[in-house]
């Protein structure tokens, strides 16, 4: 475990805490994409099937369980909580995520390291994670008043991805035989998806303005 990896994981953890706090404290999920949360649920379920087959470390297992539990909590709130569900931007959150899920799954069937159920689902989760933020970014673009916490949530998620790239570079230089091309390419694609958002986030922060994304 290097410092970049740990920092990346912590950013991921903070992003989820920010989202949980925001929804819980304001009793509102305005500006939050349920589609992105559901895509993350699929990503985590498919990737963390190895919870049943292999033990890596207490840290690893704990983080996996936190990611799974928190994502399902957010989905539950947005769908069923009697106060929170009313605040969901149903009409704006219209990204058709089947157009992400199907191609990612087909790609995982073709491009994988081993043609087994576990490995294909794991690879599928890698591809799907790369694009899972898209419904959220589209929703932010349609939201006129992006509140700080929602903006911070996406910024923290993007930072987590950027730090993972540094982690890969560090590991590549320090560990012999460490390489994972599919993960790297997907991770780089995933980070590129955030660049536009980063630009507007930092600009609004420097100019002390409210964040808004041009349509």
């Amino acid at each position: 475990m290097n410092i970049f990896r740990l920092a990346g994981d912590m950013m991921h953890l903070f992003s989820i805490i920010v989202l949980l706090l925001k929804i819980n404290a304001t009793r509102s999920c305005r500006g939050v994409s349920l589609k992105t949360q559901e895509l993350y649920a699929i990503v985590f379920v498919c990737r963390y099937l190895d919870l049943f087959t292999s033990f890596i470390s207490l840290y690893n297992t704990t983080m996996k369980l936190i990611f799974l539990l928190s994502t399902f909590t957010i989905i539950y709130w947005m769908r069923f909580h009697k106060v929170i569900r009313v605040t969901y931007d149903r009409e704006q959150d219209t990204f058709r995520y089947q157009f992400l899920i199907l191609p990612c799954f087909l790609l995982a069937l073709v491009l994988n390291n081993e043609f087994s159920a576990m490995e294909v689902l794991w690879t599928f989760s890698i591809y799907l994670e790369a694009v899972a933020i898209l419904p959220q970014l589209v929703l932010l673009q349609r939201t006129n008043n992006i509140d700080n916490l929602t903006g911070n949530y996406v910024f923290l998620l993007g930072s987590y991805r950027a730090l993972y790239i540094l982690n890969w570079i560090y590991r590549f230089m320090t560990e012999p035989n460490y390489r994972q091309y599919l993960v790297w390419i997907s991770g780089i694609v995933q980070t590129i998806v955030y660049i536009d958002f980063f630009y507007y986030y930092i600009r609004s922060w420097r100019n002390n303005e409210k964040l808004s994304l041009p349509a």
Binding site: N113, W122, R171, L182
Partner: peptide, 10 residues
């Protein structure tokens, strides 16, 4: 040649 996958990442 198969990659050595680092499944220790999250």
């Amino acid at each position: 040649v198969r990659e050595k996958i680092a499944k220790d990442e999250l």
